[in-house]
């Protein structure tokens, strides 16, 4: 059976930003991620561009290929159709926004090839 989605995508979930501010998941903006990453000692924000979206191993899964960061590292992730990603300047987006809205009451746009998602990498240790 498919892996359950984490509970924090449910509308109304309380998210703590890096500066301690609390926001609901549906109210998060691109700047919240950028500012939180700026003051994080461990995490660095990166942009991941959606290059391909293919069917996954099960009917309710998709394989999303991203091009990550300046080096354009190719990364594939298999997630449930309703898994939301945060797109720069747009907000939550999933491959099946209707399902995300139905399951999590989280308004979503359709995730498309070319969308640039917020992703995180570890800051390199010196």
């Amino acid at each position: 059976s498919p892996v359950a989605l984490p509970p924090f995508f449910m509308r109304g979930s309380i998210i703590q930003l890096a500066d301690g501010e609390l926001k609901r998941v549906e109210d998060l903006k691109t700047e919240d991620f950028i500012q939180s990453a700026e003051i994080s000692s461990e995490l660095k924000i990166d942009s991941s561009t959606v290059e391909r979206i293919d069917s996954g191993q099960s009917p309710n899964a998709v394989v999303i290929q991203f091009s990550v960061g300046e080096l354009k590292a190719q990364v594939c992730v298999e997630v449930l159709l309703e898994y939301p990603f945060f797109v720069f300047g747009q907000g939550w987006s999933s491959c099946c926004p209707d399902r995300t809205t139905q399951l999590f009451e989280l308004s979503c746009a359709k995730l498309c090839v070319g969308d640039v998602c917020v992703s995180l990498t570890l800051r390199s240790l010196r």
Partner: peptide
Amino acid sequence: VPVFPWHSLVPFLAPTQSD
């Protein structure tokens, strides 16, 4: 009410291992 850290919302993108 549970409070979740902001970074839990963003998937860490690590290279996929071949099966």
